[in-house]
Computed example of a mutant assay.
Amino acid sequence: MANVTFGGREVTLVGNEVKVGDKAPDFTVRQNNLRRLTLEDSKGTVRLISVVPSIDTEVCDQQTRRFNEEAAKLEGVTVLTVSVDLPFAQQRWCGAAGIENLQTVSDYRDRNFGEAYGVLIQDFQLLTRAIFVIDKNDTVTYVEYVPEATDHPNYEAAIEAAKKALA
């Protein structure tokens, strides 16, 4: 598993570490209207999945706003932000932040995404910061488990990976 710290403290991640070349694990999360969303729902598109611990924190806020801006330029890419925040809180935050180009989804019910992608922090039942790019054939083409969960991901590398997966 990836070695990750949260606020300088080493944490234990639950689930399987996902690697480039793997078939993307299926998952079930909840949309802001509480409807289910699975990997299959975006089949045939490139997916950029941005994982954050909580949308209401500074770095998570900035990360989601950044990918919202980039999503407007990434035609053919489905951009999701996954956290364990309740769908109602995500919806409120998106409205206040003017998020229109990506979709926030919640893993609050059973941490299905967190375990499938190896991003569930056992101690806190939050998701660690990570980025995944999945191509149209459901193959993982980019992975970043951010070593310190309170740091920013490599935005440029993730965006380039999404563009490359479109080709």
Results as ranks from 00 to 15, higher is better:
residue 146 V to W: 04
residue 149 A to S: 15
residue 149 A to K: 03
residue 116 A to G: 06
residue 159 I to K: 04
residue 140 V to K: 01
residue 142 Y to A: 12
residue 157 A to H: 05
residue 113 F to V: 10
residue 147 P to E: 12
residue 128 T to V: 12
residue 149 A to Q: 07
residue 151 D to M: 11
residue 144 E to N: 08
residue 109 R to V: 12
residue 147 P to S: 12
residue 146 V to F: 05
residue 113 F to K: 02
residue 126 L to R: 13
residue 116 A to T: 03
residue 157 A to P: 05
residue 150 T to R: 14
residue 123 D to T: 09
residue 152 H to P: 03
residue 113 F to G: 09
residue 158 A to W: 06
residue 160 E to I: 02
residue 158 A to Y: 09
residue 158 A to I: 10
residue 109 R to L: 13
residue 137 N to R: 10
residue 148 E to D: 15
residue 150 T to A: 10
residue 136 K to N: 10
residue 112 N to D: 15
residue 140 V to C: 05
residue 148 E to Y: 06
residue 121 I to Y: 03
residue 109 R to T: 11
residue 113 F to D: 10
residue 151 D to N: 15
residue 139 T to Q: 14
residue 141 T to L: 02
residue 112 N to H: 13
residue 131 I to Y: 09
residue 118 G to S: 08
residue 158 A to V: 06
residue 142 Y to W: 08
residue 152 H to I: 04
residue 150 T to Y: 05
residue 130 A to C: 11
residue 109 R to H: 07
residue 119 V to Y: 06
residue 148 E to S: 13
residue 136 K to T: 14
residue 149 A to W: 04
residue 154 N to E: 12
residue 162 A to R: 01
residue 152 H to N: 15
residue 155 Y to R: 07
residue 126 L to N: 12
residue 129 R to E: 13
residue 157 A to N: 09
residue 151 D to E: 14
residue 121 I to F: 04
residue 119 V to W: 02
residue 157 A to C: 06
residue 145 Y to S: 06
residue 124 F to A: 15
residue 114 G to R: 01
residue 157 A to I: 06
residue 114 G to D: 10
residue 143 V to K: 00
residue 120 L to T: 00
residue 126 L to Y: 10
residue 117 Y to M: 03
residue 118 G to H: 02
residue 133 V to C: 11
residue 145 Y to Q: 07
residue 162 A to G: 08
residue 133 V to M: 04
residue 124 F to G: 01
residue 115 E to W: 01
residue 114 G to W: 01
residue 114 G to L: 01
residue 115 E to I: 13
residue 139 T to V: 14
residue 118 G to C: 02
residue 139 T to N: 14
residue 137 N to A: 15
residue 124 F to H: 10
residue 137 N to K: 15
residue 153 P to C: 13
residue 153 P to N: 08
residue 132 F to M: 12
residue 125 Q to L: 14
residue 122 Q to R: 15
residue 121 I to G: 00
residue 155 Y to E: 05
residue 118 G to V: 04
residue 138 D to G: 03
residue 132 F to H: 13
residue 134 I to L: 07
residue 109 R to P: 00
residue 145 Y to A: 08
residue 156 E to G: 05
residue 131 I to F: 14
residue 161 A to I: 08
residue 151 D to R: 09
residue 136 K to W: 10
residue 115 E to F: 01
residue 109 R to Q: 11
residue 116 A to R: 10
residue 110 D to P: 00
residue 115 E to G: 02
residue 149 A to T: 15
residue 110 D to F: 08
residue 159 I to S: 05
residue 111 R to T: 08
residue 141 T to W: 00
residue 151 D to F: 11
residue 122 Q to S: 13
residue 140 V to N: 02
residue 125 Q to T: 12
residue 125 Q to Y: 09
residue 117 Y to T: 03
residue 161 A to T: 09
residue 125 Q to E: 14
